[in-house]
Computed example of a mutant assay.
Amino acid sequence: MARLPADLEDVLARYVRGPALVREAVNGAGPGVISRAGSGGWSVRDVLVHLADAELVRASRLRFMLAEEEPPALPGFDEGRWKRRLQYLWRSPEAALALYDALVYSNAELLRQFPAEAFGRDGLVDGERVTVAELLQRGAAHSEEHADQIRALRAELGDRPGR
């Protein structure tokens, strides 16, 4: 029987709330604000596309770790290189947010089906052993960090949520 470990119930709830936090942070931002880079070189659009791409990688990692007995070394990625080579500047922020939302939903639906011991399964990511539980924890923190980044970026650009 599927049973999420008690110590991960809050983590899964935070993970599932991630897309809503990001949508809240973006709400009311116009195209000029979404596309303009801040002092760190990233725009709101870039962050949204990054979230979708990172979640796509997480989805792949989770599936390999849960389905394979000996998963191959799992892919890492260079977010700066992906931003440049995958043309974040021209990508749709709406499509990125929709993809991010769908991937989080799909990953959460998948994780709810597994017994507690499955969360200890692991794989090799960038030379480090990482468990399914750790991927989930990182996913929850990732959305929270980027929602904060979007709010800070909007403030830096003189835009405020709800304007």
Results as ranks from 00 to 15, higher is better:
D101V: 03
D101G: 02
K83Y: 06
A96R: 08
Q87V: 06
D78F: 15
V104H: 00
W90I: 04
R84H: 13
R84V: 08
R91I: 11
E79N: 10
D101Q: 10
W82K: 01
S92C: 14
E79V: 02
L97C: 06
G76R: 09
V104T: 03
F77P: 02
G76I: 07
L103D: 00
S92N: 09
Y100F: 15
L103I: 13
Q87W: 07
G76T: 07
Y88K: 03
R91H: 05
S92I: 11
L86G: 00
R84K: 10
P75C: 02
W82E: 02
D78P: 07
V104I: 10
A98H: 08
P75Q: 09
D101A: 11
G76D: 12
P93D: 11
V104D: 04
P75A: 13
R84C: 11
S92D: 13
R91K: 13
L97S: 06
D101K: 03
V104Y: 01
W90L: 09
A102Q: 05
P93W: 13
W90F: 06
E79S: 07
L86W: 05
L103N: 04
R91D: 02
Y100A: 04
L89Q: 11
F77C: 06
F77W: 15
Y100E: 08
R91S: 07
P93Y: 14
R84E: 13
W90G: 09
L97D: 08
Q87L: 08
F77V: 06
F77G: 05
Q87M: 05
E94P: 13
A98C: 10
Q87Y: 05
F77E: 11
S92L: 15
P93M: 14
A96I: 11
A102N: 09
R85T: 07
K83L: 04
A102M: 01
L103F: 10
L86Q: 09
D78N: 12
Q87P: 04
A96G: 08
L97G: 02
V104E: 02
R91C: 02
W82P: 00
P75N: 10
R84F: 05
Y88S: 09
F77N: 03
E79I: 05
K83F: 10
D101H: 03
